[in-house]
Amino acid sequence: MADSNDARLEQFIGRLLQVGVIFASVVVLIGAICLLTGQSHEPASFQSFQAAPKDYRSLSGVIAAAARFDCRGVIQLGLLLLIATPIARVAFSLVAFALERDRIYVIVTAVVLGILLFSLLFEH
């Protein structure tokens, strides 16, 4: 196991995370501008709790809402991209460990990835 390989992998992953965050922030910002230019006089208060509307609570709902350029849907899509960033990090690590033929860490990483995908995709 070469340490320099690990270092290069980590640097790549670090950059991946940064790009993911920037990309997600830009999408959230577009949604924010859309919301604040079009609907800025809507009342805003979050003192009493009602679960966010159904459209903003599932992967398919968010994508559909963003596709029809619903401002809150665009924001939610940005937040989903943000959530996907560390998941992508784990997926890339899995590939890297597989290329290094590191069986223990292929299994470890696959377990982590499985847990993340289960939590994101499974409707609780």
């Binding site: 949604g31 679960a51 509307p53 609570r57 609780h124």
Partner: peptide
């Protein structure tokens, strides 16, 4: 955080506004 974010999202605790 990504592991619990999906659960929060499905439950409607992530309010975009």
């Amino acid at each position: 955080a990504a592991a619990s974010a999906g659960i929060y999202l499905h439950r409607g605790w992530v309010e975009p506004t």
